[in-house]
Design a protein around this nucleic acid. Sequence first.
DNA 1: TGACTATACGGAGACTATCTCCGGTTAACA
DNA 2: TGTTAACCGGAGATAGTCTCCGTATAGTCA
Lengths: 199, 199
Amino acid sequence: MASVTTDTDVADDDIRPMRADARRNYDKLIAAAREVFTERGSEGSLDEIAKRAGVGPGTLYRHFPTRDDLLDALMRDWTERVVADAEAAVSADISPRKTLEQWFTAYIGHVTLHRGAAVKLSAAMDDESSPMYRKCQTLISANEHVLDDLAGSGALRSGVEARQVMRLISGVATFADSTGIGEDEVTPMLDIVIDGILK
Amino acid sequence: MASVTTDTDVADDDIRPMRADARRNYDKLIAAAREVFTERGSEGSLDEIAKRAGVGPGTLYRHFPTRDDLLDALMRDWTERVVADAEAAVSADISPRKTLEQWFTAYIGHVTLHRGAAVKLSAAMDDESSPMYRKCQTLISANEHVLDDLAGSGALRSGVEARQVMRLISGVATFADSTGIGEDEVTPMLDIVIDGILK
DNA sequence: TGACTATACGGAGACTATCTCCGGTTAACA
DNA sequence: TGTTAACCGGAGATAGTCTCCGTATAGTCA
């Protein structure tokens, strides 16, 4: 986590700036949500979040009509981190296998923000109406970037599509999230997938 | 679905038989749960199930202390079907690839009983306290059976463990369940996994 | 600075779901 | 038919979601 308090200045792509009190409450809600979701997973109580932020439930629901909107807002600087990790995997001078291991591990880390987040993100990938849909697009293109690079150096089997790979890794992430297995137990699963991807 | 009304005669491995009214209510609850879970997924309201069964909530909770107990009870003849499908895949005179395709597809079918079931079953695989834990053991050994057979004929890469394969396929199933993609979209994912498994 | 107004706040409360407790009922058996 | 252990049912405690609307205040302009 780079910085706790430094969220971006504007809450959304909205034109008009927020009123000072609104901005204050928005930030307090984000901080409280981060706490509660970390402790209780992404099904944590929304009223509890409002309480911890010291605001009424009405205020919470005005800022974030749905739980997914709140989850989405927590991922403000997430996009940049995803892109950076994909780039790091590509530009590192390592074997294709290591590249994939590194990227997949990072991917899974990004998708398991909180307990229950992986399944929500997976669901959002094919649901344009989800507030998190656009975030997923970032994930998709980051993954494409890594795979295209490997394809360029001829390391991939023919017929391997980035979309399928992304779905597979999302499945691994969801499984890891729901069972609570650790990274050391995830690696063997990834190894099989990587064998299925590389020549 | 083989038969709707023919559940087994005894509710559990309990010694004493149930009282007639208890048995009646038990069966009505199972039927109602099957309805509601099919309509609303495995997060459907339990009180709603009690209502449809025409019993009080107390009766439901006496028979099934937790939601997972109820889910488990719905899977009464599930075990046999799983074992049968594994056996069918093994004994069919087809290529290793076809064997795996057939088995994995069956596996995913078994695990996605209702919307939300796959993630619950995945979670139960590493949770001995879950009522569904024993069901998962069935799934695990059925999967081992298929993979052992392929290993015996030398079709598998070295180092492929049944447990990891099972987890991967569970991940695929969970992804399919949460996004709602169909079987035709699942096959390409399975193809990658199969490439990672076979020599 | 003071008054005006759009914007935002907050919390009471309606609604829904989970789960328990216990007074009343009934199946099973002699 | 009487006895009793087993079972039923539903009122209600608890908790989470979400809305409505009277009140408060930040921002603005004279």
